[in-house]
Design a protein around this nucleic acid. Structure first.
Lengths: 232, 232
DNA sequence: TAATTTTATATGTAGGACATATTTTAGATA
DNA sequence: TATCTAAAATATGTCCTACATATAAAATTA
C-alpha cells in the first residue's frame, strides 16, 4: 500500500481530443490560414461526439490557435500566448503564492529590460517620459494622496514597457497592472513609508537620456530597492 | 462613412457566458474550495442551453479556475497562470514575431534574475552548478557536436531558473525551452561561430560563489552578448 | 458582363437522453 | 446497537438530433 494506485486515465475526453488536435496541427506543420477539417468530420475520425470536438475547439479558439467563420469552417491562426493569462490575471482569482511570483517577475523584468530600452529608445520617448516626471513633480496631490502617487508610478513604468518594443512584454505588463496595484497597496498598508529608493524617476530619465544601458540597469535596481528588500 | 460601422457584438454566447461567470466569481469573492451552482442551474439563470455553459466551464477548467468532480459538482480552484501558455508554446504553432518576443524575454529574464539568485542561493546550488560546468568542460563531444553544446547550455541556464525560488518563473522557462532550442539552432545555422561571450559558464559560477548580485548581473549580460548583438 | 437572388454548407445554439461516478440513505446482518 | 452492505439520488460526462444563422458559391436575371 506504499502510495496510491495508478489513476489509469481520468483525463476527460475533451482534454484528450484537444491534445490530439494540437498534435495533428504540429505534425502536419499547418501554416497560418490553412483550413481545418470540419467538426463533424473530426468527430467521426476521432470516434467521439460533435459536442466533445466542439468543446476542444472552443478551448483552442480561446487560445487563438484556430478561428472559425460561419460557413468557411475553421482555419489555423497564430495563437496569442497571453490570451489565456489575460482572463485570470486578477487579484480576486489568483492565490497569494502566484501573486508573489508575479510581483517578483515584475522586478526581474524591469531590471533586465534595460538593454532593450537602449536599443529601441528614440528622442520622443525621452521627451514623453520627462513630461510624465514633470507632471508628477508639479502635482500637489502627489504629496498627500497615495492613489495619485500610484497612478504616476504606474504611468511611468508602463511607458518603459512600451518603449521596449516588445509587444508581448508590453501587453504582459498591462495585464499585470491590477496585481501591481493590489500588491503595492498591501505594501503601503503594512508600512507607512512612501517606499522610494535613492534613485528617482527623474534620475532614470536622465540616465536614459545621456547614460548607458549598464548605468540604467543599476539605477533601476536601486530605484526598486524597497521592493527587493521585502523579498525573503 | 469615415471608417467602419460598429460591429455591435459578434461575440459568441460561450464567450459572453465565460465572462459572466468570471465576473460572478470575482464579485462574490469566492474562496478556493467554494462550490459553484450546477450546470443546469447556471444554464437556467443565464437563459442559455447547458451546452453553452459547459463550453464556458470547459474553458475555465482548462485555465484552472474551476475543478469538477462527478457528483460533488464544480468548485473554485486557484487558477494556474501558465496552463494556457503551456499548450501553445511550440515553434510549430507560434508565429515568427511571437518567437522573437519570447527570445528577447529570455534575455531580459536572465539578466534581471540576478538579485533573486543571490537572495535564494545556497551552497549546494553552487556545487551542482559547478558539477554541470565541469561535466561540460570534460565532454569531448562538446567540441564537435552542436546538440551537445546546446544541451549543456540549456541545463546550465535551466538550473539558474530553478534557483530563483520562483516556481512560476521556473515553469515558464521550462516551457520556453522548445522555443530557445529552435531559435538557437536558427542562429547557429546563419552564422558558423560558436556564439560565446567573453564570460563563460565557469565565470558565472565563480561569481555566484564569491561575487555580488551586481557583478553577476553584468557578467550575465556579457555572457549573453552574442544574442543581444543580434537585436535590432 | 455585372448585379441580384437563390442555394448549399459549416458553425452556433438548443434540448433531451443516457452513462458514470460518488455521496447519501436505507436496509440487512451480526 | 453497531457495522457492513446494498440501493437511491444527484451532478458531471457523453451522445444524439434538430434547427438557427451566416456566408461563400452557384444560379438567375437585367
Amino acid at each position: 500500500m506504499s502510495s496510491k494506485i495508478k489513476p489509469i486515465k481520468s483525463v476527460s475526453l475533451v482534454e484528450q481530443v484537444e491534445q490530439r488536435i494540437l498534435e495533428f496541427l504540429k505534425e502536419n506543420r499547418f501554416k497560418s490560414g490553412d483550413s481545418l477539417p470540419g467538426e463533424i468530420e473530426l468527430a467521426e475520425n476521432l470516434g467521439v461526439s460533435r459536442n466533445i470536438v466542439r468543446e476542444s475547439l472552443s478551448r483552442l479558439r480561446m487560445l487563438g490557435v484556430v478561428e472559425s467563420k460561419k460557413r468557411k469552417g475553421m482555419f489555423i491562426a497564430e495563437p496569442d500566448i497571453l490570451s489565456g493569462i489575460e482572463r485570470i490575471m486578477d487579484p480576486d482569482l489568483l492565490g497569494e503564492e502566484a501573486m508573489q511570483h508575479i510581483f517578483e517577475l515584475r522586478l526581474v523584468l524591469e531590471v533586465g529590460m534595460s538593454e532593450l530600452l537602449f536599443i529601441r529608445k528614440n528622442d520622443s520617448d525621452v521627451v514623453n517620459l520627462q513630461e510624465i516626471v514633470d507632471r508628477e513633480a508639479n502635482d500637489p496631490l502627489c504629496k498627500t494622496d497615495l492613489q495619485t502617487r500610484l497612478a504616476y508610478e504606474i504611468e511611468f513604468h508602463s511607458y518603459l514597457y512600451k518603449m521596449s518594443g516588445n509587444g508581448t512584454l508590453n501587453r504582459f505588463q498591462s495585464m499585470l497592472l491590477p496585481v501591481f496595484h493590489y500588491m503595492m497597496q498591501q505594501e503601503s498598508k503594512s508600512a507607512a513609508e512612501p517606499k522610494r529608493g535613492s534613485i528617482s524617476h527623474n534620475d532614470l530619465v536622465e540616465t536614459l537620456r545621456s547614460g548607458t544601458a549598464y548605468e540604467f540597469r543599476e539605477n533601476m535596481r536601486n530605484h526598486l530597492t524597497p521592493h527587493f528588500s521585502k523579498l525573503s
